[in-house]
């Protein structure tokens, strides 16, 4: 009973934290962009503008619900929900921390579900978020939306391949798909790189790490690969026709997907919740270490967005199929050779 209660509590806390983090990320985006462009950014609502996401949310709820003429009504409503739900569900297997406590001999671990197929789950369920973009773009009955949806589709399929191959390289090294075990392996003392560096996969798989991080940008439709939105050509891309909370749901989905992808990068390549040189770190220190690493990657998402120009679409496709895929394949081949020897 207590174990069930603990599980429910974990679900509530993790989902609540994820949605709040998505809200905070929207503020962070605006503040970081302002900082990079020597502006101040929103600072009027609450101290330093921290209540801005809340004010935005209230505004979105009070806006008019609008379905454009000729749109496919059900799909139009379903699309943003799909987009957000997929991103929220994929966080279920991320190990945020180690052992919290033990209840009646049952260890309570800081992750909603500890699946044996964890890494696959994130890719499979997270990949479904694309349906929100495609269906939203198609159901809007607007050419800009449709183009946005089409671009997102092609982009997603192209980069998912390289991303999965990068994950596969880590999986081949760790011999498991379970994310918690992947973290524990990176934490163990005999996995130290050159005997002194922490045993993080980034040191064993530098190429896979770089490819993976770039692929996460493409997978989440973020700058410099945000062709699904592409304001200068497509007005707003797939969400041109969306208003009120439906529009906001797309954004919650996008930021949640960014957070999940950051969590995946940290878990696969940067030792997850482990603390270097301190294997028996207490739960809270581990959690803090995890959140610190994730925050860095979230900042990287914003930093890149406000520093780099957008690619051209053909450049994106060339990069995906002619550079990333061969590199990822070579990497998996070398990893396979190294593991089998």
């Amino acid at each position: 009973m207590t174990v069930l209660l603990a599980t429910i509590l974990k679900v509530v806390v993790i989902f609540g934290a994820l949605i709040s983090a998505a809200g905070i990320s929207t503020l962070a985006e605006r503040r970081v962009s302002a900082w990079i462009q020597h502006r101040i950014g929103p600072n009027r609502v609450g101290p330093f503008g921290v209540l801005q996401p809340l004010a935005d949310g209230i505004k979105f709820i009070f806006k008019e619900e609008f379905v454009p003429e000729g749109a496919n009504r059900w799909l139009f409503i379903l699309a943003p929900a799909l987009s957000a739900a997929a991103a929220l569900m994929s966080v279920a297997v991320i190990p945020f921390g180690g052992l919290i406590t033990e209840i009646d001999g049952t260890p309570i671990l800081m992750s909603i579900a500890d699946l044996d197929i964890g890494a696959l789950w994130v890719v499979a369920i997270g990949g479904l978020g694309i349906y929100g973009v495609i269906l939203g773009g198609w159901a809007s009955n607007s050419k800009y939306s449709l183009f946005g949806g089409l671009r997102a589709t092609a982009q997603m399929i192209s980069y998912e391949l390289s991303m999965i191959l990068c994950i596969l390289a880590v999986v081949a090294m760790s011999d498991t798909l379970n994310l918690r075990e992947i973290v524990n392996l990176q934490d163990s003392a005999d996995s130290r790189c050159f005997g002194f560096l922490p045993g993080w996969n980034i040191f064993y798989q530098p190429l896979a790490f770089v490819l993976f991080v770039i692929c996460t940008f493409a997978e989440t439709n973020r700058h410099p690969f945000d062709f699904a939105e592409c304001e200068s050509e497509l007005v707003g891309g797939f969400h041109t026709e969306y208003s009120s909370m439906k529009f906001a749901l797309f954004f919650i989905g996008e930021y949640c997907a960014m957070i999940v992808m950051s969590c995946m990068t940290v878990t696969l390549f940067l030792g997850g919740f482990s603390v270097p040189y301190w294997s028996e770190a207490p739960f809270l220190i581990g959690l803090a270490s995890f959140l610190l690493k994730v925050t860095f990657f979230m900042f990287l998402f914003l930093w890149v967005r406000w520093s780099l120009p957008r690619f051209r679409y053909d450049q994106l496709m060339n990069l995906g199929w002619k550079v990333f895929l061969p590199l990822a394949l070579v990497n998996i081949l070398l990893t396979g050779l190294a593991v089998s020897l």
Binding site: L120, A124, G127, W138
Partner: peptide, 16 residues
């Protein structure tokens, strides 16, 4: 992953 995430997305893409 394969059918839901990749193949059906491709189908949708072609249909659109």
């Amino acid at each position: 992953l394969v059918y839901g995430g990749a193949i059906m997305v491709l189908f949708l893409f072609v249909v659109m």
